[in-house]
Amino acid sequence: MIDAGALSAVSFALIAGITTFFSPCAYPLLPGYVGYYVSQTDGEEPSLGGALSRGFIAGAGVLVTLGILFLVAFQVSHATLSNLVYFEPIAGAVLVIFGVLIITDRAPSLSVPLPKRRSSLLGFGIFGSGYALAAAGCVAPLFVGVVMRAVSAPTTTGAMVVGTYVGSVVALMVALTVVTGMGLVAAGQFARFGPQLKQFAGVVMILAGLGQLYLSAVLLGVL
């Protein structure tokens, strides 16, 4: 049975993964992705098989990029493991600040170019990879928080934390591609709900930052 500490870490990773996917400086890329999908399949009948294949390729792009980021982060973390605990309050404070910037609409925005060649399945993988990089960079303190929990936890729990975080982002990318391929969403829908999702992401990041500051002050005794 999973203990309370592991459940808390995995729950944090799940929330972090969802927040990463809808991060405010990556979320504006999604209407372009929907439009790219439509342009690639113009004239084709909606196909679940085709949507799934494109979704898995986009998800693979996410998986590869996040996998590389975690490998690099783990190398750095293990090299400075004795001082890793001191990064917890820093990450928490940055999360709170960045959350406030999001709510006040001062967060940065990013762009990821998409290939223009028709029928390019590779283009979906490129977008998935670029989106993951933009999203993780947008919420870097949150990503660092996931890394710290994975590194400081037992091996099994750490693997669950990383798997939950990466899996949630991959699953959302696959789901988005499939519902787009089946004609269930349009680019305009993202623009319509964008402000609400940005506010939600900002609130979640502030709460996550406060949680990390609490962990630093009460449980780790850093502050």
Rank of each mutant, 00 (worst) to 15 (best):
M160Q: 10
G92E: 06
K116V: 14
L69G: 14
I57V: 15
R118V: 04
P89L: 03
L210Q: 01
G67P: 08
R149T: 05
L210W: 03
V144H: 01
V162A: 09
G32H: 11
A16K: 04
V222K: 10
L95M: 15
N83E: 05
G5I: 09
A153P: 07
N83D: 05
V100R: 06
F74I: 14
G130H: 10
L95Y: 05
F190D: 04
G194N: 12
I68T: 08
L81F: 10
M205H: 07
A107M: 09
P115E: 00
K116L: 13
A132H: 08
T157W: 12
S23Y: 07
M148K: 09
M148G: 10
P154F: 04
G209T: 13
G188W: 08
Y37D: 03
V10I: 15
L101K: 12
A136Y: 11
V203Y: 13
G221W: 09
A60N: 00
A150H: 13
F190C: 04
L63W: 08
L122R: 13
L121T: 07
V204W: 04
L207A: 14
E45P: 00
A79K: 05
L14I: 14
V10S: 01
G221H: 07
S47T: 05
G137E: 09
L176P: 06
F124C: 02
V94R: 06
S120G: 04
V139R: 09
A4R: 12
D3E: 05
L30Q: 13
A16Q: 02
I68P: 01
S119C: 00
Y131E: 02
